[in-house]
Computed example of a mutant assay.
Amino acid sequence: MKRILLFISMVLSAFASGCASREGSAVGGALGGAAVGVGAYEYSAHRQMQQVEDDYRAGRINRKEYEIRKNQIEKGSIFQR
C-alpha cells in the first residue's frame, strides 16, 4: 500500500510540474489518469489478497488453494509481490 501511495504522489508531482504549458498539461493529464487507474487496480488486488488471507485463516480454503489464489493475484499485480 505504501508503494502505491508513493507511486501516486510521484505521478501527481510530475503532473503538477507539467501544467505550465499545453503539452505539459496534456501529458500531466494522461499521467494523472493512468495513476488513478493503476491505483484503483492495485487497491483491488490488495483487497483480494486480504480476502484470500482471511479465508485461509478462517479455514474456508486449504493451503493449496491459498497458494494458487495468491499466485494469481501476484501475477496480475505490480506491487503485490
Rank of each mutant, 00 (worst) to 15 (best):
S21Q: 01
S44R: 13
N62T: 06
I73L: 12
R69H: 04
E53V: 06
G33N: 03
S21M: 03
L12E: 06
I68G: 05
Q48L: 12
H46Y: 08
S21T: 01
R47A: 11
F7Y: 10
R69N: 08
G32V: 00
D55T: 11
F15E: 07
K70D: 14
S77R: 02
M49W: 04
S17D: 15
V27T: 03
A40F: 13
V52G: 10
S77F: 06
L31Y: 00
G59C: 07
A20D: 13
L31Q: 03
A34D: 08
Y43V: 09
A20L: 05
E67F: 02
G24S: 02
R57M: 14
L6K: 04
M1L: 07
A26F: 02
S13I: 13
S77N: 10
A16I: 09
A40D: 10
A26P: 00
A16K: 00
E53Y: 01
S44C: 09
V27Q: 06
H46V: 04
R81G: 13
I61D: 04
S77G: 10
M49C: 04
I73F: 05
E74F: 15
F79P: 15
I73N: 05
L12M: 09
G39I: 01
I8W: 05
L31R: 00
I8Y: 06
G18T: 05
V36P: 01
Y41D: 15
A16L: 11
Y41M: 15
L31W: 01
K2G: 10
A35H: 06
S44K: 14
A20N: 06
V38S: 11
F7W: 07
G28M: 00
G24F: 01
A26Y: 01
L31D: 09
N71V: 09
Q48F: 12
C19A: 14
L12K: 03
F7Q: 09
K64L: 14
A58Y: 03
R81M: 14
V36K: 09
L12H: 06
C19W: 13
V52C: 11
N62R: 09
A14C: 14
R22C: 13
L5A: 10
A58N: 01
I78Y: 12
R3H: 05
E67V: 06
R69D: 12
G32C: 03
A45M: 14
Y43M: 15
E42W: 04
R81T: 13
R81P: 14
K2Y: 07
V27L: 12
A58E: 03
A20Y: 02
G76I: 02
Y66G: 11
